[in-house]
């Protein structure tokens, strides 16, 4: 197994776990009577874990959401969908590996799945463009969600992107139109549509696959109008002030649940999704199933009307 990537605040726990593992190995080979000590340390580790993870700051959650070991779209696809078939291309320019689209079976139902895909390691990340789609990625998603709509298939989207790619070619090929067109396409869908924010919900690039009937977020995911770094470099003229920006913008799942902008927070195992991808995927499966079952009872026209109504209500203002 590869060396775990440890965030600063995770280190005390990982150190302790390493020590326990060493002692266990030792007590297996000798008769040193280390069992009591091991139990004591395990208790301590448990306490430390719940202490640290129950009081994460917003910035720490941002770091969790970006954790390099965090499960990505494909990790969920492999665990909770069967018969998955990936489909490619926008039929006008190209394919984009930063967004994965295809049909799969979820709990006996054929559904259309789309999701941002980040890479593992440098080479894979270059291939996936760090999960930052180009216009062709969004247009592929648009083409296929309209196909799903055409055949009355429910849609599930997994959001996990730092944002739409800000590149030369992306602008040449109309990044803005690609996103705007997707927003319009989603406002017109007549099928059940659930979006789950897995890690980073990076601004317009995330929303471009996120106008859903149900918007769910994993406990340690974030969703934000601009990256904390971007916000900090504009407002404080210093991107290293990102932790302050994350606090000010209130980007966590529980923040957004509190504002009633999302429907449900999906719990992660203690220590975060990357500590136990199987349990996390199981939690996602259960919640997805619940919402899909509910949504399938509503006729398509009604779903579309309610979806528009829901988003048209968003906002807080005063009358002077």
């Amino acid at each position: 197994m590869h060396e775990r990537v440890a965030l600063d605040f995770e280190k005390p726990i990982l150190d302790l776990e390493k020590k326990i593992a060493e002692m266990k190995a030792l007590s297996g080979t000798s008769q040193l009577g280390l069992d009591d000590e091991i139990t004591r340390l395990e208790k301590k580790a448990g306490k430390l874990r719940s202490e640290i993870y129950s009081s994460l700051t917003r910035w720490q959650r941002v770091q969790m959401a970006r954790h390099p070991d965090r499960p990505y779209t494909l990790d969920y696809l492999n665990r909770i969908f069967t018969d998955f078939i990936e489909l490619h291309g926008d039929r006008s320019y190209g394919d984009d590996p930063a967004i994965i689209c295809g049909f799969g079976t979820f709990e006996g139902v054929s559904v259309f799945v789309m999701g941002h895909q980040k890479g593992r390691g440098t080479k894979d990340n270059l291939y996936r463009n760090f999960g930052m789609p180009n216009p062709e990625g969004y247009r592929k998603a648009r083409r296929l969600m309209q196909l799903a709509d055409h055949f009355s298939k429910p849609i599930i989207s997994f959001i996990d992107t730092p944002g739409a790619y800000p590149g030369l070619g992306a602008e040449e090929r109309g990044q803005a139109e690609a996103i705007a067109g997707n927003l319009m396409a989603m406002a017109n869908l007549r099928v059940p549509f659930i979006a789950v924010v897995l890690g980073e919900g990076g601004s317009g690039g995330a929303l471009a696959i996120g106008i859903a009937d149900r918007v769910l977020m994993l406990e340690n995911s974030i969703y934000s109008v601009i990256s904390p770094e971007g916000c900090a470099s504009i407002l404080y003229r210093d991107s290293s002030e990102a932790p302050r920006a994350a606090e000010a913008m209130k980007v966590t799942a529980s923040d957004l649940k509190g504002m009633k902008l999302i429907d449900e927070v999906i719990p992660e195992p203690l220590g975060g999704a990357h500590r136990d991808p199987d349990t996390t995927a199981e939690n996602v499966r259960k919640v997805l199933k619940k919402h899909l079952t509910e949504l399938q009872k509503t006729p398509g026209e009604e779903l579309c009307r309610l979806r528009r109504e829901r988003f048209m209500k968003v906002g807080v203002w005063e009358k002077k």
Partner: peptide, 25 residues
């Protein structure tokens, strides 16, 4: 662009105005 001082409320104005425009269309 979107006003960051209102966080996600701002981002979702993209969805809000689009849904209204879908009705217009």
């Amino acid at each position: 662009g979107m006003r960051m001082q209102e966080g996600m409320y701002s981002l979702l104005q993209m969805a809000k105005t689009t849904c209204a425009l879908a009705q217009l269309a």
